[in-house]
């Protein structure tokens, strides 16, 4: 799961895809995940970090993670 290289992310939760011209907004967790992906952290590392800091159980995070990744893919933000 890798973010496309040229995707611009901001800490306030904006994403801009220069190759398609689309803009996106993210909630806090979404923005955190994307920033860490941009730093090339692995899925496992990011998930572990969220489990440590947020009140969420593993199975719910796993489910949301898959949903989020499929959304990123649908919006053409991931490398294949």
């Amino acid at each position: 799961m890798k973010l496309k290289k040229n995707i611009a992310t901001s800490e306030s939760g904006f994403v801009f895809n220069p190759s398609s011209g689309d803009s996106f907004s993210l909630n806090t967790i979404g923005a955190e995940i994307l920033l860490q992906m941009k730093e090339s952290k692995s899925s496992e590392e990011i998930k572990k970090d969220i489990l440590n800091r947020y009140d969420v159980d593993k199975s719910l995070l796993e489910k949301d993670w898959d949903d989020f990744m499929s959304q990123l893919r649908d919006n053409n933000l991931l490398e294949f």
């Binding site: 996106f24 993210l26 995940i33």
Partner: peptide, 15 residues
Amino acid sequence: MSKLKYEGPVIKKMN
């Protein structure tokens, strides 16, 4: 330390 309130990640296209 208490943990932060969780909300699933959301991405939304700005139309």
